[in-house]
Computed example of a mutant assay.
Amino acid sequence: MRDQILVANAGSSSLKFHVYDVFDNDQLCFAYGGQISGIGDRLPHFRVRDAQGQDLLNQDLAPDQALNLHSAQHLVADWLIAHLPKPPIAVGHRIVHGGTQYSASVAITPDVIEYLDGLSPLAPLHQRNNLAPVKVIMDRWPDIYQVACFDTAFHQGHDPVVSHFAIPKAYYERGVRRYGFHGLSYQYISQQLHAEWPDIYAGRVLVAHLGSGASACSLKAGRSVDTSMGFTALDGVPMGTRPGKLDAGVLLWMMEQGMTHDQIQSLLYTESGLKGLSGISADMRVLCDSDETQAQLAVDHFCFRVAETLAGLCVSLGGVDALVFTAGIGEHSPFVRAAIADRLAWLGVHIDPAKNESSREGLISTADSAVKVLVLPTNEELVIAQESLRLIRAEAGINI
């Protein structure tokens, strides 16, 4: 009976899981995965698909079955108990923030949970939700090995010039610094470049992780040099519902107008970005299909700020050899890729229109482009599974 690793990723309105089979030489192969979406909504849905994309489960849920993340977790747990032939050897979790203490994935203990829970104000939409399945599993199956994999870890080790804000040093020592996020995605892209595009991997690479959450990162020889997100996941480029870079004076003004902490937090995390600017939707597909002026403004603003950010990251690299688009928008929106590339033409970025329209993966730049442009699907869950397997093998004294 083959060993398996379970990966859990809990958000504010969805709970995702992937199951990986462990083969000889500790190769991992996706077996099946699913999610409960619409948690807390009138129409929650539970879907599970296998490696061939065939449905193992596809059903609407009653609202009270996924009233909140707690009830959704127990629903997923019951389904997994009925379908896993034996308990997984490890459960890996995506945890957004690792703070100053963790620069790599770690085995989860009560002390680790306590520290990570204390970072929740730095990621109010993510951290406690990420930790919720950890606590459920620890309560129901205390002997299962659990691993925390951090979105901040890949960016640890940045030059102090990059990681500091221009505020008194005492705040840096208290943890107020630029951490960066989406590190699991960037780690996967780095691995793929190393395996499939070694010449590009060895050079100066910009990666645009463009989804409902969006950021950019500069890689040199596969390592993070700088990134657009900072102390929290609000900074950098505009996102689905987050504003990206914002003058701190705007927040002071809001406070002067009498807005509370919770009102400002809600505005910045759930009402801004594409949703706020367009007044229509946080979904890039909806905005690109719309003829509304504000929708077009939101798309143009997004593409402009992403291009501006990518150009700025070239400073950390001393130039650029390749640009990689990844994540939901980056992988599936030829229009957005083209609009960003057009704004970077002065850097030597030129994409082939036909390749851009048809490609979901691979090289889309022209033969004479000074900068190679690729589309690479990301796979954060596989990185979490790899890290979990690495740690449990290390604990057993086995090198992989």
Rank of each mutant, 00 (worst) to 15 (best):
I5Q: 06
L6H: 11
N9Q: 12
F23C: 14
Q27N: 14
F30C: 08
G34S: 09
Q35Y: 12
I36S: 05
R47F: 08
D50C: 09
D50L: 04
L56M: 15
L57T: 15
Q59N: 10
D64K: 08
Q65G: 10
S71I: 04
Q73D: 06
Q73E: 13
L84F: 08
A90W: 11
V96F: 10
G99A: 02
Y102G: 04
V106K: 10
V106I: 14
P110Y: 03
D111S: 13
D111M: 03
D117H: 14
L119I: 08
Q127Y: 05
A132S: 15
P133I: 04
V134I: 15
D139S: 13
W141R: 11
I144W: 11
D151Q: 10
T152S: 07
F154E: 10
G157C: 06
H158Q: 13
V161E: 13
S163Q: 11
F165T: 02
A166W: 08
A166P: 09
Y172P: 00
R174T: 12
Y179N: 11
H182W: 01
S185R: 07
Y186S: 00
I189E: 07
L193A: 05
L193T: 06
L193E: 00
H194Q: 15
Y201L: 01
R204Y: 07
R204L: 07
V205N: 09
V205K: 09
L210W: 11
G213H: 01
K220Y: 13
T227N: 06
M229W: 09
D235G: 12
V250L: 13
M254S: 05
M255P: 01
Q257M: 14
Q257P: 10
G258T: 10
G258Q: 10
L267H: 10
L267I: 11
L268P: 01
L268T: 07
S272M: 06
G276E: 03
G279D: 01
A282G: 05
V286P: 00
D291M: 06
D291N: 13
A295L: 02
Q296S: 02
V299L: 07
D300I: 00
F304G: 00
R305W: 12
E308T: 06
T309D: 07
L313K: 06
C314D: 04
A327H: 03
G330V: 12
H332I: 05
A341I: 06
A345Q: 15
W346V: 12
L347N: 01
G348P: 03
D352Y: 09
P353Y: 06
P353T: 07
E357R: 13
R360Q: 14
E361F: 04
D368R: 02
A370K: 14
V373D: 01
L374N: 01
V375P: 01
I384E: 00
I384P: 02
E387F: 00
S388Q: 08
R390M: 09
I392C: 15
I392F: 10
